[in-house]
Design a protein around this nucleic acid. Sequence first.
DNA 1: ATATCACATTAGATATAGTCTAAGTTCTCA
DNA 2: TGAGAACTTAGACTATATCTAATGTGATAT
Lengths: 143, 143
Amino acid sequence: MDAEAIKRSLEDTGLRCTPQRYAVMAFLMETDQHPTSAEIFEAVNRVDPRSSRATTYNNLRDLVQAGLVREVAIEGRAARFDAKGMRHHHFICDRCGNVEDIDWYDLPSPAPGSLDKRILRESEVIFRGLCAKCAPGGASRQA
Amino acid sequence: MDAEAIKRSLEDTGLRCTPQRYAVMAFLMETDQHPTSAEIFEAVNRVDPRSSRATTYNNLRDLVQAGLVREVAIEGRAARFDAKGMRHHHFICDRCGNVEDIDWYDLPSPAPGSLDKRILRESEVIFRGLCAKCAPGGASRQA
DNA sequence: ATATCACATTAGATATAGTCTAAGTTCTCA
DNA sequence: TGAGAACTTAGACTATATCTAATGTGATAT
Ligand SMILES: [Mn+2]
Ligand SMILES: [Mn+2]
Ligand SMILES: [Zn+2]
Ligand SMILES: [Zn+2]
């Protein structure tokens, strides 16, 4: 996705395309990792323009609200973010906390009535276990 | 589940049944809410013995490791906990952050190969949206 | 019974993640 | 061109969770 497309997707949701906001979005779209806010802050500041920590948080919040970015909360660690490109599920490593994408597949709906008066917006599967690096025999061999 | 059963489940996993640890477990088993560590700390201290904040965190960590308790990370809020009784999924409210249980149902496995070298321990579905209280028309009507 | 030692608890200090404030800047549009 | 809205900023602040080092407790061995 090119610069124009990012610009359009921002403006379609009522957000101005500022250099700081563009940089966050562009960075998230070009990685398949799930960086933390601190990593995003550092990455967008390796090139100009300088963006503040508050702005990074503000923009992540706005992008999540706009539905362009997903936030993944992880027990005991900083939240991670990804651009919502293709629909997908997530695998979260018990040991290192890394988040990895798992191909999307449709879920069976919950038993009718079990959602009651709730309004469902989305559902996702979280897989947990050990990532390839942390699994015994994996490359980790952490010192 | 009675006191003896809790005691046994703790000792089966190699944990001593201390009054503080028992109190955390008993409290989690008798509620269908998903209290935060602060709420658990307060609840177990409404009755003796007094338990410290550090002990509450220590015990929650131990109980999660032992597989008796589940921790639910929520974006921008304190983690919540529940006793792993019956298997179930979770609904998390976008607005108030409340976690509610959804009846268990089996998931289709991910496409073969899509888990690659990872070791899968468990999977769960997270539903998101508005809880009954927060849905328009719900009782919330927040001032 | 008593010594021993691993397990557990504690208060408070510390660390980490995220939010808020108040002032300044840039964009939009009348 | 002027006014207001949207945005950015540094740094103070808050919330959540972990760590430290001293103390307490209970199971086991002798
Ligand atoms: Mn992802
Ligand atoms: Mn639950
Ligand atoms: Zn890992
Ligand atoms: Zn709600």
